[in-house]
Each structure stands twice: as C-alpha cells, then as structure tokens.
Computed example of a mutant assay.
Amino acid sequence: MTRAFRGLDRRSFVTSAAALGAVGFSAPGLAQTPDAGRVQYDPNDDQTRNISSFRAQDWKPYFTSLRNGAILCDYTSRAVHYWSEDESIYRLYPSSIPVSAELTRKGRTEVIKKVEGPSWAPTPDMRKRNPEWPPFVPPGPDNPLGTHALYLSWQYYRIHGTHDTRKIGRKSSNGCVGLYNEHIKELFGYAKIGTQVLII
C-alpha cells in the first residue's frame, strides 16, 4: 500500500468519524446504559479508567453534575465530548492531542474566556524549542488557533480550531486540544464561561 493511499484512507476514516461523531443526540435517544468495562474515573490510575476507542460516553463517571455544561477531553481516544447542562445536547468530536507527555496536562479546569478570531503567540517554552517561529500571528486563515478558542483556567491551555486539518486525530499539539474549525465553532456556541472541563 502506498503512503499516499494510506494517508487518503486515514483521512477518509477521520472525516467519516467526524461526520458521525459530531451528530447531536438528545438524551432520550442516546442509550446511556453502563457497560461491564466501565469504572469510575480515577485521575491517578490510567489503567483502570475506561480507555475504549472513539465512541459515545456517559458523563456520570467523570462529573458529579452538568452545571454550566461539561467538556471531556480524552487523550486516549483523541476525542472531545460535550454535554449541555439540561442533557438535551451531546456532541462527540475527533481532536488532536499533545505530541509528548512533557507537554501534557490532565485534570479539572474550566472555560474562562471565549474568543472568536483569536490571535496567537508562542509561549516562552515554544520559542526556546522553535526559535524560527514568529512571535505573533494575527487572526486569519494561517492562525494556529483556527477560527475560535476556548481559554482554560490553566495558563496557555486552550481548546481551539486549527488551520491544518492534518493534525486532527494525531499527536500534534504543544499542549492544547485542537478541533476542526467547524467543530470548535459549534462547541464555542454551546460552551460558556464556567463550563467545566476534564482532561484525561
């Protein structure tokens, strides 16, 4: 199998997964039955939590409530889940994840700011690793944050879009969670200041 064909095949899969995964489910229509392999989320034990592949999830193993809505970023399945406070909306999106453990942060945080048309500047650590990068990129089609960004309470961490769709579904970020621009636009509309976020 040629490299080009493998890439096309993977891209087709990711695109199909995106189309399927981003479909919204109303709570009554989504089977939320527990399965035998699911256990409560333990932030200290990656082996005992649910590490199944990209699929619909129930929010209850991860959050005590859906106050202000909830976003789950699962690095194992490279997926972002969103539940609205009243459970009427559920979304599932493919995502990019950090390229290495050193750039990865996990735990609980929340959305503290929403920016449409974000600008981007590399962090000091990024500049050290990549001195050739520009110090600032204004909003636009070449911006690494894409069209929308949800800023988290952790400094420098975002859930954002991307100008490079090849990154989705891969270890490709410097710490943030990336989505297709059409998906971050939708999530941006659902999320609000105070939406809780769990990264696992």
Rank of each mutant, 00 (worst) to 15 (best):
L103S: 15
S173R: 07
S52D: 14
V39R: 15
S95W: 04
R3T: 07
P43A: 03
S65W: 01
F188G: 01
H160S: 03
G117N: 13
A22R: 15
E85Y: 11
T15S: 07
R6V: 10
N68T: 12
I200F: 10
D35K: 02
L150S: 13
N143D: 07
K192M: 04
V111R: 01
I97L: 02
S88M: 00
K185N: 09
A4K: 11
Q47V: 11
R78D: 08
E87T: 09
D74G: 07
Y82L: 05
E85C: 09
D46R: 08
K185V: 06
F54Y: 15
G7V: 08
Y93E: 03
Y157H: 13
R38E: 14
R3G: 11
H163F: 08
A31N: 15
F63M: 08
R10K: 10
R6P: 01
A70W: 10
A27N: 09
T48G: 12
S84C: 02
V39E: 13
N143L: 00
T104W: 05
I184Q: 02
S172H: 05
K185H: 11
Y90R: 09
G69T: 02
D74W: 05
P138W: 03
V177D: 10
R3S: 07
G24Y: 13
D58T: 15
I200K: 06
F188E: 05
G7P: 00
R158V: 05
F13M: 10
V39M: 10
P118A: 13
L152D: 03
L103H: 14
I159V: 13
Y90N: 07
G146I: 10
L103V: 07
K171M: 11
G21N: 07
S96F: 09
G140Q: 12
Y180S: 04
G175K: 06
T64H: 13
G117E: 05
P124A: 04
S173V: 03
A36D: 12
G117I: 09
R108W: 02
V39A: 08
S16N: 14
R49E: 11
I51P: 02
A191I: 07
Q57W: 14
Y75P: 01
L150Y: 06
A4V: 12
S84N: 04
T2A: 08
T64D: 14
S173I: 00
A22V: 08
P118Q: 15
A56D: 15
S153V: 12
E110C: 03
W154C: 01
T33F: 02
D142L: 11
R67G: 00
Y75H: 13
V39W: 02
Q155A: 11
R11E: 13
V23N: 09
I199E: 06
A4F: 06
S26L: 04
S95V: 14
F13K: 11
G169D: 12
G117T: 13
P135M: 06
V111I: 15
A31K: 14
